[in-house]
Design a protein around this nucleic acid. Structure first.
Length: 378
DNA sequence: TAATGCGGGCGTA
DNA sequence: TACGCCCGCATTA
């Protein structure tokens, strides 16, 4: 079913790759070819030594997008934009989810944000996070070059990523959105506050009844429509949240004055495996390969609505193993992933941090991070 | 708040 | 000189 779509996409990619490989230009050439017969589909995961020519109308190309975490690098050449790969953020404990998947988070692009990110905990086991640097280009990070010339945008990558793929930008953004939404939710729901006040100190779970309304409201103005759709189905799936202590939505109002960004060290006892039941709810990205950049709109890739739709977010810690994997497309993922009132389910089953109080005490941001991982969307 | 782009500046090969 | 990298600033979402 999904396979067919993937095959088509793969063919498009192959075509794009072949086309790119056949080009003889170099990004540093004084003059780049202007007799381009065929522009390429936008490549979300360019790897190795690839060259592509995109339409200048291609929104993704215009924005110099990449699902790799690429940061701007000053090459003192205003004509050629250079970016270098930041690698991937992994769990310092090398933990695995129940189904054996590893944690591969997207490094924050902003230096400051990245430092902050590294002080946070593994969403799966609360262990320390570690930045796995990219060394795919002669020991240096893989570099991507972008150059706008006339109707085209020339892209060239140098080096082959020697690390797994991080979550995509949209996945990372979605995770943050969830965190914010969750924070707003916890701060704006008097009823929840009251319950939190009563329950949280003991680590006891909220009653499921306390959530539906605020949650649906949250979905309405924070999450994309289809995002809510994802969530809705999840309510039917049994989940337990006992691995990392209190679930994210149980943060006590005012617990961290910094909306969940407290800089507290990870206190997890280095579990090698976090057997959180819900980690089985893994988006089968490897199969479908969610790919918001896929050319479902053609080489122009001008799909703002598609881009904006945060549908089918997999758990941020659950990238598509084994990597690299074939890229899929929005269509392929649209059929899956529906989680929603799911949030209420763990409330019942979890023991909270009563028994593991030290696991995540005061680490609400860990739990925020864990949100997506514990309740991945399908 | 973070992503992104730009550009100055420094160190190294 | 090219390259990698750090930093600060401005803009944008």
């Amino acid at each position: 079913m999904l396979k067919g779509a993937d095959d088509v996409i793969m063919e498009q990619e192959d075509s794009a790759s072949r086309h790119g490989e056949m080009t003889s230009w170099d990004i540093n050439d004084i003059k780049l070819p202007q007799d381009v017969r065929q522009i390429d589909w936008f490549q979300e995961w360019p790897d190795s030594y690839e060259k592509h020519i995109y339409s200048s109308e291609d929104k993704n190309a215009q924005r110099h997008h990449s699902s790799w975490a690429m940061r701007n690098t000053n090459n003192h050449n205003s004509r050629i934009l250079k970016k270098s790969c930041l690698g991937v953020v992994v769990c310092g404990n090398d933990c695995s989810t129940l189904d054996g998947r590893k944690i591969y988070l997207r490094p924050a692009i902003c230096d400051k944000a990245r430092q902050k990110q590294q002080r946070k905990c593994c969403p799966n086991c609360n262990g320390p996070l570690r930045l796995l640097s990219c060394r795919g280009h002669g020991g240096y990070p893989v570099t991507n070059f972008w150059r706008h010339e006339g109707q085209f945008i020339f892209f060239q990558s140098k080096g082959a990523h020697d690390h797994p793929r991080p979550e995509t930008k949209l996945e990372a953004e979605a995770r943050r959105s969830i965190q914010k939404a969750q924070t707003a939710f916890s701060l704006s729901s008097p009823r929840l506050k009251r319950i939190q006040k009563i329950e949280s100190p003991t680590g006891a779970m909220l009653t499921p009844e306390a959530l539906p309304l605020p949650l649906s409201k949250l979905d309405a103005y924070v999450l994309p429509a289809n995002f809510g759709e994802h969530l809705s189905k999840s309510s039917q799936e049994p989940t337990l949240g006992s691995c990392c202590g209190r679930p994210p939505y149980l943060r006590v109002a005012g617990e961290d004055g910094d909306s969940g960004e407290a800089d507290l060290p990870c206190t997890a006892p280095s579990p090698r495996h976090c057997t959180h039941p819900s980690t089985q709810h893994v988006l089968p990205m490897a199969e479908g390969g969610h790919d918001p950049f896929r050319p479902n709109a053609g080489p122009l890739g001008d799909e703002p609505s598609e881009e904006k739709s945060l549908l089918a977010y997999s758990s941020s810690c659950l990238p598509p193993p084994p990597y690299p994997v074939p890229q899929g497309g929005p269509r392929t993922m649209a059929s899956g992933a529906k989680h929603h009132h799911h949030l209420s389910a763990p409330l019942r089953g979890s023991e909270g941090d009563r028994g593991q109080g030290r696991c995540c005490t005061g680490l609400s941001y860990c739990n925020d991070n864990a949100f997506f991982n514990l309740y991945p969307l399908r």
